[in-house]
Design a protein around this nucleic acid. Sequence first.
DNA 1: TTTTTATCGTACCGTACGGTACGGTTCGGG
DNA 2: CCCGAACCGTACCGTACGGTACGATAAAAA
Lengths: 215, 215
Amino acid sequence: MNEQVNIIKEQVIAEETPSAREQEVLSVVLDLMVEEGDGFSMASVARRASCSKETLYRWFGDRDGLLTATVQWQASKVRMPKLDGDNLTLEAFAETLNEFAFSWLTVLTGDVSIALNRLAVSHAGNNKSSLGRIVLENGPFAMRSRLLPIFLMGHKASIITVQGDEAFRTFFGLVIADVQIRALLGDDKRLSKKQIEKFAQRAVEQFLTLCGSKQ
Amino acid sequence: MNEQVNIIKEQVIAEETPSAREQEVLSVVLDLMVEEGDGFSMASVARRASCSKETLYRWFGDRDGLLTATVQWQASKVRMPKLDGDNLTLEAFAETLNEFAFSWLTVLTGDVSIALNRLAVSHAGNNKSSLGRIVLENGPFAMRSRLLPIFLMGHKASIITVQGDEAFRTFFGLVIADVQIRALLGDDKRLSKKQIEKFAQRAVEQFLTLCGSKQ
DNA sequence: TTTTTATCGTACCGTACGGTACGGTTCGGG
DNA sequence: CCCGAACCGTACCGTACGGTACGATAAAAA
């Protein structure tokens, strides 16, 4: 009975809101992930976080639990962008998409995102790990959830002719293209802010050419 | 002196043309990679290939050498598609792109490609492994090398208005979109042949809308 | 003040795996 | 026919790491 309560409490704490001390640990894990990929040991985490391995295992269960908590914590830090109201001009719509695309590309090419996606990809094969699922839902699927309402508004305002998955797929491809897979595979060429701006702008132009109402 | 010659010969053999027996081993590695990702052991390779671990190490040096040889071998199996001559109509050009896109998507969503890319991505962080480089060059970069001449021909025939990296990036995005990253992250939804056909066709239509000469 | 709880640091254990060594067998060349 | 090279199967070694146990310490609870 009491055990049950404690277990439930721990789960809630771990999945919803890590304590300050726990966040210190998760931050260390994130750093190590950027530095060494999946190769870091539990001992290295404990050492750098100045905590004992026993504490790690009590808080997070096992290594996979620690990784899961880290990924979920990072995902929770990404915030939804503000949505426009009903004052939908073509320019405002395009500008919203432009900001979105720029922000998206900036995040995707960041060290943390690359490390996280590498980890998730490499764990996606092992069926006894849900990291792939988590990153999938907090990455592509979350972007989709944010974009669909925007596309719907644009559609209702007769700015674009398509919406839903059709629009999302097109937008995704035009914005991301080969940027993410090249980064994941370790391509040396890093995009500058200027280039990202250019890519985002060009992608939005192309998207509006394809999906915009002809007039 | 004699050692040098042997070393060089070994390298050439290993990188260029694995023997039949070696190819059996590499095939086993490919299978294990699909089944277990990066987790398989050298012992499991030796067991399934009915060879000794000592032989594995003599042929491939170490585990990384075995993985590298496997990736290179797989890459060497992909063949260039036939290029059209000078009879360039819009229909022929579109059909070539269509076939290319269909084939590309089919390969990318296959088990072997997914396993290979997962491996390369997870090794791309560790700087003491060139797997990411190899897959990058035999994946995206190789596709680019094949497409650029096609785009150039289309440009010279006034079928499309752009060429080079601009055209490649657009085509890549429209064709691949979120398919590869979703597959790598373990999305359950597998594309059917019908869906791939539809995606390829739609992508080519969009590409020609964006980059085709208006007439 | 005493007791309990949580944590730290360290030591420890078992296992899995990369890499090596070796005896036995096959097979092609002299 | 014999010799040596290549190879198989197995055993072996060292290490690294996941996970556990334990004593020490400090703070909170009683």
